[in-house]
């Protein structure tokens, strides 16, 4: 079995994987990072969203082997130095989660939206950009509000506007 090495949430890791091992399986089963969830098998729900070299991807549709040398950030790595990421804060502040299953993917996707679209997001942009993330509990109402607020907060907390990882 091939060995794959990468940096996950700032830590160098390596693991023996099969060719077919998915990134999400590596994260959940080999590394115990169970915050990244699997909600479908057709690459649609977005519960498994992580950042791969700084870009949001659905980790259920990426082979672990193809991530050799990559830098991965999962929901567990978003908070830094014990401080919640502004997007995490915003989700809590605005009651943007109920059951919480889609939430890690939503938050990771939201941070990626900010990377692509900036900190000043209007409602329409957020709704369009959430196309790859499905939530069954919230009707999206508070998620849209949280992302708007979290994006603005990211600007304040990082003058460059650059999201992490």
């Amino acid at each position: 079995m091939p060995t794959v090495s990468m940096t996950v949430n700032g830590k160098r890791v390596s693991a023996e994987v099969e060719g077919r091992t998915l990134l999400v399986e590596l994260l959940r089963e080999h590394l115990g990072l169970t915050g990244t969830h699997v909600g479908c098998d057709t690459t649609q729900c977005g519960c498994c969203t992580v950042h791969l070299n700084g870009t949001g991807v659905k980790s259920c549709t990426v082979l672990a082997a193809s991530c050799e040398g990559a830098t991965i950030t999962t929901i567990e790595g978003l908070a830094t130095e014990g401080k919640l990421h502004p997007m995490q804060e915003a989700f809590r502040e605005h009651h943007a989660l109920q059951c919480g299953f889609c939430t890690p993917g939503m938050i990771m996707s939201a941070v990626d939206i900010v990377r692509r679209k900036g900190n000043d997001l209007d409602e329409r942009t957020i709704r369009e950009q959430l196309e790859g993330n499905i939530c069954r509990c919230t009707g999206y109402h508070n998620i849209v509000i949280a992302i708007q607020s979290g994006a603005a907060a990211m600007k304040q907390s990082r003058p460059s506007g650059a999201p992490p990882g």
């Binding site: 977005g46 870009t55 659905k58 549709t61 996707s109 196309e131 790859g132």
Partner: peptide, 9 residues
Amino acid sequence: IGDPLVRNR
């Protein structure tokens, strides 16, 4: 195409 996460990949 797809959704933003799919378009990234």
